[in-house]
Design a protein around this nucleic acid. Structure first.
Lengths: 260, 260
DNA sequence: CGGGACGTTGACGGTCGTCAAAATTAGTGG
DNA sequence: CCACTAATTTTGACGACCGTCAACGTCCCG
């Protein structure tokens, strides 16, 4: 609902092979070695195609926690594949409104909003120290004219984002606070699990206020609702550490026809 | 906010050249003659490219009011360009929830949700008798490998949809009923105006309930809010006919920092 | 003319936002 | 390592906004 559920990589790993420093230089970027390739890249590529796609990945870039990958109004030139870390994207209006439009984690692609007008329409902020692969969009377009699998892949990534946003609209338009937050937790768990993390434990990288913004709620409501889940024995909360004791109960909350 | 605002075609027309029947057959589909081409098609094509793109448009299809163009769960094969008529797209869940995710009018492309998994994830329902151009997605992909302008165009259309949905999320997540409906009316007006219709008068093709679903409100709230706008002298309402008396007031309502 | 879909309006209540205060944690500099 | 401040979180009291339920009015179409 919040994210398409079919993503599941086969070789999960906590941190994976970092760009190891040998003396003064760093090992060449190599998607073929990257444990996230099944998330970022098309499957079933020939070695030749793989090589060519690696050329698209121009460089890596590190972002400190709180720093921005791109900002609203900046010229669009690159898409970014997240290697490590956690981002939020948010739109802001002149009158000071601010809306988190998504949270992105390793293996996800960020920056698609910039394509229409060659300008980014949202901010991408790192919620923890992060590293991204920079992919000049012009080169993606060039190469996807030649490598059909890449073309498909780009289309699917964009379509997936559209479908994800449809799910968020459903959530914002018709669910009550408990349902929204249950869906939110389930979605995070599912995505983290697909990356090899625990099914039941997770660490929130964002504040209650950011969760609230994403879910169309105030931070107090987020806090209260978490507290209620704790009372009901559904989760344990210790600051940003959350342990899900009863995932089935969360699923039941989401699919309760109430509210509407 | 609800739709990207930069679309503006230069040769608007009320109904345009329909597929005129001459005797038993219909005039060949010709994008080059279509008055909507500036909405559906890339600009600056060579005549050769234009010819090739016309081959992609396989056929036309008429949908009666209330009929569906595609349904949730159906196999995805085509994108559709709306020639005439008005559609809604909506997602439904097992537990009976229903959320309108967008309203589409002439010149807009519909069906992008199906690309990720080759299955449509929403329903597209005609709100009035409609006609669409059917564009097999495989052929779009083929041709956009060869015609760069088409490739750009496809990417922009998808990105535009992502940005539109970001706007809706902002609206659903942080605006109050009056703000939502003011934004809704302004958006419809802007899109209709770009198609050559009046700046100030519009006919709603959807029910209060459908507006409410899109905006995350109940139909009673929609009705009440319209009534309030009437009291305030901002609009006139006669059933589905709406005349905007004070667009500036609507804009002021949207950008009031109130609410969140 | 009559039935059904759609729209309007009122009364009432629930959910969630607002405001405020206190508790806990994180971050910073000595 | 500790003190101190800022940031985040929790909890409570209260009220506003909007949903719910209900009744009535209007339009459309056979």
């Amino acid at each position: 609902m919040l994210n398409s559920p079919e993503i599941k990589i086969s070789t999960p790993s906590g941190d994976g092979e970092k760009p190891v420093s040998i003396g003064a230089h760093t090992i060449k970027i190599a998607c073929s070695n990257c444990n996230l390739r099944e998330l970022c890249m098309p499957v079933g590529l020939t070695p030749t195609e793989m090589d060519r796609i690696e050329e698209v990945v121009a460089s890596r870039r590190k972002i400190k926690r709180g720093g921005s990958l791109f900002r609203l109004g900046e010229k669009f030139t690159n898409l970014y594949a997240i290697r490590t870390g956690f981002f939020k994207t948010c739109v802001t209006t002149e009158d000071g409104r601010d809306q988190v439009t998504g949270f992105q984690m390793a293996g996800e692609v960020i920056g698609l909003d910039g394509i229409v007008n060659d300008v980014h329409t949202c901010n991408a902020i790192a919620l923890e120290d992060a590293e991204v692969c920079t992919m000049p969009f012009e080169r993606i377009e060039e190469l996807s004219r030649e490598v059909t699998a890449l073309q498909h892949h780009v289309h699917k990534i964009m379509s997936r984002e559209i479908v994800r946003e449809n799910g968020v609209m459903l959530l914002l338009g018709s669910m009550r606070a408990e349902e929204r937050l249950a869906a939110f937790l389930l979605n995070l768990m599912q995505r983290l699990h697909a990356r090899g993390f625990s099914q039941s434990e997770l660490v929130l990288r964002m504040t209650r206020e950011e969760i609230g913004s994403y879910m169309g709620l105030k931070l107090e409501t987020v806090s209260r609702t978490f507290s209620k889940f704790v009372e009901d024995g559904i989760i344990e909360v210790k600051q940003r550490h959350i342990r899900v004791l009863n995932a089935q109960a969360l699923r039941a909350i989401v699919s309760t026809k109430a509210g509407s």
